[in-house]
């Protein structure tokens, strides 16, 4: 590495592979990062659903049957836990990443967080209406 050539060699304590098990906050951080894997899994799941719907009613019904098999249900339950973890941590971080001003006043963090939950409720209601009407 070129960095070591210009900088004096400092001792760097080796970090264990399991550093994220050392503290609760590290563990939550690691789980939050891991949530992305379940986000990706659910995109794959929705793509399989879309593909099945495109191929006809029989394929759609067998997709639903497959989705009801125990391992897929367990996987999707775990997915729900991680997706909710992603949602909560994402909403909580938003006020730190964005500063919103209204009439020159900085909008407080709680208001930004609350407005996201309102957005979530509106979106969820719309999706449920669209899919089940």
């Amino acid at each position: 590495m070129s960095e070591t050539e210009v900088q004096p060699r400092a001792y760097r304590r080796p970090v264990s592979t399991w550093w994220w098990l050392e503290k609760r906050s590290y563990f939550v951080f690691a789980m939050r990062e891991l949530s992305s894997v379940f986000v990706a899994w659910f995109v794959v799941f929705l793509l399989m659903l879309t593909y099945a719907v495109g191929r006809g009613d029989d394929q759609y019904q067998s997709f639903l049957d497959w989705a009801a098999t125990p391992w897929v249900v367990v996987l999707n339950l775990v997915t729900l836990v991680f997706v909710v973890l992603h949602m909560v941590t994402w909403f909580n971080l938003t006020p730190q990443a964005t500063v919103v001003r209204l009439r020159g006043q900085r909008v407080p963090a709680w208001a930004i967080i609350a407005s996201q939950y309102v957005g979530l409720a509106v979106v969820s209601a719309f999706v449920i209406w669209l899919v089940t009407r």
Binding site: V39, F42, H86, W90, I128
Partner: peptide, 9 residues
């Protein structure tokens, strides 16, 4: 993902 995935899952 935060807004749309929970309801879809």
């Amino acid at each position: 993902a935060a807004v749309f995935l929970p309801v879809l899952v």
